[in-house]
Every structure is written in C-alpha cells, then in structure tokens.
C-alpha cells in the first residue's frame, strides 16, 4: 500500500473514531478524550512544513464541520503541525534518522521515552490551545487548567493503546543507494 493511500485511510478512520466513538463517551465534563490529532503525530518526516500545516488545517476543519462551529480544532492542529519539526530535531538521537525512517515512532526516535515526550508535549500544546480558545469565551482559568491536564492524560493513554494495537512496521531505509 502506498504511503498516500495509507495516510488517507488513516485520516478517515481517525475522524470517524473521534466523531462516532470518543465524542459519545461522557466520562466527566472535565475530561474530553481526543485521539484524532494522532494523524498529525504520525505524518511522514519528509513533508515540507507548509504542507504539514495545510494538511493539519484540513484535519481540524473536518472535525469542526461535525461540531458545527468552525475554527477551534483547526487552530490547535495548525499550531502543533508548526511545532512538530522543532521537537523532532531536538529529540531525534542520531544524525540522519529522519531520512532513514518514514515517520515518527518509538523505533525511529530511538526508544520509547523520547517518543512519549514527543507525543506528550504535542498533546499538551494541542489541548491547551484548544481549551484556551474555548475558555476564552467562558473565562474560567482553573477550569481550563484542570481540564487540559486531565484530558492530556486520557489522550496519552489512548495514544499508547493505539500504538500497541496497530504496530507500524518500519524498515530501515538507507540513503546510500
């Protein structure tokens, strides 16, 4: 399966899971389980940064269409797509690993810990920016902070589960052909 087809299927599946499964679970009003942005975390290394931001905008806008209030998720997605390359540069261990592997994973980032830091930081920023835009209308700071932290924990759990369920096989590609 080509990389493009794989990513399109991933896009559709993640949006459907978000809208029809996770959005219907009402744990508590302080916890909103989010998983759809995993698509941005799993985007290939090779894409240009502008393309990453535009794809992230499309993802956020699709989810916003189901929520009938455009803007919130689009803004959060674009922000993490912009910050993603910086984090990868800091966390990736050896020279050229981002050209040897296709996309971020525990293996390509050299261990489980750097990968979880990568996922954790981006999840936190996504939730913080999203809930900040929402809380800006309601204006309650503590509510915003607690909601961000709790939802980040739940999202990280969901990411770990997704990572264990759908193991992505990534072979080592050499660029010395």
């Amino acid at each position: 399966m080509s990389r493009l087809v794989k990513n399109i299927i991933r896009f559709i599946l993640l949006i459907l899971v978000q809208v029809f499964v996770l959005d219907r679970i009402h744990v508590h009003y302080l916890v909103t389980p989010y998983l759809y942005f995993l698509f941005i975390l799993w985007m290939p290394f090779q894409l240009s940064r502008t393309a990453q931001m535009l794809i992230a905008l499309a993802l956020g806008f699709t989810l916003d269409s189901f929520r009938h209030h455009p803007g919130f998720h689009s803004a959060a997605c674009v922000l993490i797509a912009y910050l993603r390359p910086f984090l990868i540069n800091i966390l990736i261990p050896q020279e050229g690993a981002d050209s040897n592997y296709e996309e971020p994973s525990a293996k390509s980032m050299g261990g489980f810990l750097p990968y979880m830091i990568y996922a954790g930081v981006l999840t936190f920023i996504h939730h913080a920016w999203l809930f900040f835009l929402e809380a800006w209308q309601f204006g309650d700071f503590w509510y915003f902070l607690v909601k961000t932290l709790l939802s980040t924990v739940i999202s990280l759990l969901l990411i770990i589960v997704a990572e264990l369920l759908f193991s992505r096989k990534q072979q080592f590609r050499t660029n010395t052909v």
Partner: peptide, 21 residues
C-alpha cells in the same frame, strides 16, 4: 520566516472563523 508567516495567517483565519461563526 515563511513558515512562521503561514502559521500566523492560518491562526488568524481560524480565530476569525471562531469569532464570526
């Protein structure tokens, strides 16, 4: 600063959508 400019433009677009929904 092309990427940063794109980010700022997209964020302004999103916030415009939220406010003028």
């Amino acid at each position: 600063y092309f990427n940063f400019i794109v980010l700022v433009i997209l964020q302004i677009f999103c916030i415009y959508l939220i406010v003028h929904y």
